[in-house]
Computed example of a mutant assay.
Amino acid sequence: MTAPEVLRYTAFSSRSDGGNPAGVVLDARGLDDAAMQSIASEIDFSETAFVTGETSDGALAVRYFSPIAEVPFCGHATVATAVALADRGRSDAGDTIRFATAAGPVAIALSRDGEGIRAAFTSIPPSVTELRAADLAAILRLLDLEPAALDPELPPRMAHAGNPHPIVAIAARDVFDAFRFSPDAARTLMDDRGWPATITVIHRAAPDRFIARNLFPVGRITEDPATGSAAAALGAYLRELEVVPVPGRIMIEQGAHVGRPGLLTVDIPASGGIVVSGHAVPLE
């Protein structure tokens, strides 16, 4: 069997040295689970997306693998795949394409501006629940923080808009910037809890602007540079807590702490899925 072409893009940046790198395989027909996992492990980005075929209603079937396991959904790899399809002439600005994912159907709208092609995906209908006290205590131990460091206006929650994400808000910017954690301890905690995606730690820099650090120790990665599914989860969380007006828009800065700054735009409707958008470009 001929080896599939593997593309390398970065999402949520219009610069190749920013955002979150993703592998993209636009033709993964014939690849079994072991082959996809092997490719994702070799690429060693936080996720690689595989287009495995087309459903009966015309959606593209897409699967996502981290270097260690399959994940139900990946926002930045979705954006990267949609832009790669446009770059290869399989879609164009103005189109809306549909992905069939393990988390559910996802629609992606393509547009073009002065910085290139943008992709905006609409998440599945999200849910927000209480974060168990034991889980919060474990996260605080991981970050070596006391409960007093938390932002009282943004209480911890578990939010799901494709993947479950614990969300913890830190009040002071200097504390947010300075926290450290053991990647091994983070991986153990996430595996014990069955959390397939990131632990999302945020700081509110302005009413409509947030800074995020997403803990995701896989392979050589400790923090994810830009996390689309966590951005959707954050949008759902803010709507549930009624701390931002809806419909509304927030911006999320992420990746500066690991040297790959990116920007995620999150549109929050009054109900339904959260819309997350950004650019993607090939890695140089």
Rank of each mutant, 00 (worst) to 15 (best):
127 S>N: 12
192 D>V: 13
134 A>C: 02
219 G>M: 00
193 R>W: 15
150 L>P: 10
200 T>I: 03
138 A>L: 05
223 E>V: 07
202 I>Q: 06
193 R>Q: 15
207 P>E: 04
126 P>G: 06
205 A>F: 01
206 A>L: 04
135 D>C: 03
119 A>Y: 05
218 V>S: 01
226 A>M: 01
142 L>N: 05
235 G>N: 09
171 A>Y: 11
238 L>I: 13
170 I>T: 10
167 I>H: 10
199 I>C: 06
211 I>Y: 02
231 A>V: 04
125 P>V: 08
178 A>D: 14
194 G>R: 05
163 N>K: 05
213 R>Q: 01
217 P>C: 00
150 L>K: 08
175 V>I: 15
202 I>W: 08
204 R>N: 04
213 R>H: 02
115 E>M: 11
137 A>D: 08
189 L>C: 10
133 A>T: 02
162 G>H: 07
175 V>F: 10
220 R>N: 08
220 R>P: 03
214 N>G: 08
167 I>E: 09
154 L>S: 13
160 H>I: 14
140 L>H: 03
160 H>V: 14
235 G>A: 10
155 P>T: 11
228 G>Y: 03
184 D>M: 12
155 P>H: 08
218 V>M: 00
216 F>T: 05
185 A>D: 15
131 L>R: 14
224 D>G: 00
157 R>C: 05
132 R>V: 05
119 A>E: 06
220 R>T: 03
174 D>I: 08
199 I>Y: 07
142 L>H: 09
153 E>Y: 08
204 R>D: 04
200 T>M: 09
137 A>V: 02
160 H>F: 15
146 E>S: 11
207 P>A: 06
175 V>D: 15
188 T>R: 15
190 M>D: 09
201 V>G: 06
157 R>S: 07
159 A>L: 14
205 A>T: 12
115 E>P: 02
133 A>M: 01
189 L>P: 04
161 A>Y: 09
136 L>Q: 12
121 F>P: 03
157 R>V: 08
219 G>N: 01
121 F>H: 05
136 L>N: 08
158 M>W: 12
127 S>C: 10
121 F>M: 10
202 I>T: 06
174 D>K: 09
133 A>H: 03
128 V>C: 14
164 P>L: 13
235 G>I: 08
133 A>Y: 00
222 T>V: 12
186 A>E: 13
183 P>Q: 11
209 R>L: 03
175 V>N: 11
158 M>Y: 11
202 I>F: 09
197 A>L: 06
165 H>C: 13
174 D>W: 04
212 A>V: 09
115 E>V: 02
188 T>S: 15
200 T>N: 10
151 D>Q: 12
192 D>N: 15
118 R>T: 04
122 T>I: 04
187 R>K: 14
222 T>E: 13
139 I>E: 07
217 P>Q: 00
173 R>H: 15
219 G>V: 01
163 N>F: 03
160 H>Y: 15
119 A>T: 04
137 A>H: 06
219 G>C: 00
160 H>P: 11
170 I>W: 11
131 L>A: 13
203 H>I: 05
170 I>D: 10
183 P>N: 12
230 A>P: 02
176 F>D: 12
141 R>G: 08
225 P>A: 00
130 E>S: 15
167 I>D: 10
137 A>P: 01
231 A>N: 02
230 A>D: 01
126 P>M: 08
133 A>R: 07
129 T>S: 14
210 F>P: 03
207 P>K: 09
138 A>C: 06
139 I>C: 05
146 E>F: 01
235 G>S: 07
206 A>S: 11
146 E>G: 10
119 A>I: 08
